[in-house]
Simulated scan of single mutants.
Amino acid sequence: MSVLLIEDDVDLGKLLTQFLEMNDIEVVHARDGETALDLFERIEFDLAIIDVMLPDTNGFKIAKVFKQQKPDLPFLFLTAKNKKEDIISGLKLGAEDYITKPFEPEELVLRINIVLRRNLQNGNQTLDIGNSSLKHDELKLCTPQNEYKLTQKESELIAFIIKNKNRLIKRQIMLKTIWGENDYFLGRSMDVFISRLRKFFKDDPMIRIETFRGVGYIFRDN
Rank of each mutant, 00 (worst) to 15 (best):
Y98M: 10
I114P: 05
G13Y: 02
N166P: 01
E147Y: 02
I161V: 04
E85L: 08
D203T: 08
F219M: 05
L91E: 15
P74M: 11
E154N: 06
N124C: 12
E21K: 04
W179P: 01
F212Q: 12
G59Q: 06
V65W: 06
T57L: 14
K202I: 15
V52E: 14
E156M: 07
Q68C: 07
K140M: 09
K135D: 13
E154Y: 08
I6W: 12
L108R: 03
L73C: 05
I112W: 11
L93T: 07
L120S: 01
I207K: 05
K135F: 12
G13A: 04
M53E: 06
Y98Q: 05
F103L: 09
H29R: 12
T57V: 03
G90K: 00
I194Q: 11
R188N: 13
P102N: 03
I6F: 14
S89N: 14
F160Y: 04
K101Y: 11
I218C: 11
L186Y: 14
I87Y: 07
D97W: 14
A95H: 07
M53F: 14
N82Y: 14
S132T: 01
L5M: 02
D128P: 01
F19A: 01
K83Y: 12
Q172E: 04
L4I: 04
I207F: 11
N222T: 02
L16S: 08
Q125D: 02
E44K: 04
L186A: 11
L116K: 13
K70F: 12
Q125G: 09
A80K: 14
K14E: 07
G214R: 01
D11T: 09
L120M: 12
D51N: 12
K67M: 02
F66A: 01
T57F: 15
G187I: 01
F160N: 03
L15H: 01
K61W: 15
K92C: 08
L37C: 11
P144R: 10
K81C: 11
L39N: 10
M22S: 13
F219Y: 12
N124F: 05
I207T: 05
D128H: 00
R117W: 04
T79Y: 12
K199P: 04
L116T: 11
Q68S: 04
E41A: 07
Y217N: 06
T100P: 15
M22Y: 06
L110N: 08
L54K: 02
T211P: 01
Q152K: 12
R196N: 11
N131Y: 04
G130W: 06
T17G: 09
I169A: 00
E107H: 15
E34M: 10
N164P: 08
E154C: 02
K83R: 05
G33Y: 15
D191K: 06
L73T: 00
T177N: 04
D72Y: 10
I6P: 08
T35S: 08
I88F: 03
K170F: 14
P144Y: 09
V192H: 11
K149M: 05
M190Y: 10
Q121H: 10
P105D: 13
W179T: 03
E106Q: 11
E106C: 00
I194T: 06
K84A: 15
R213K: 10
I161R: 07
F201W: 03
K70V: 08
G123V: 01
P55M: 10
Q68K: 06
P105H: 07
L76T: 00
Y184G: 00
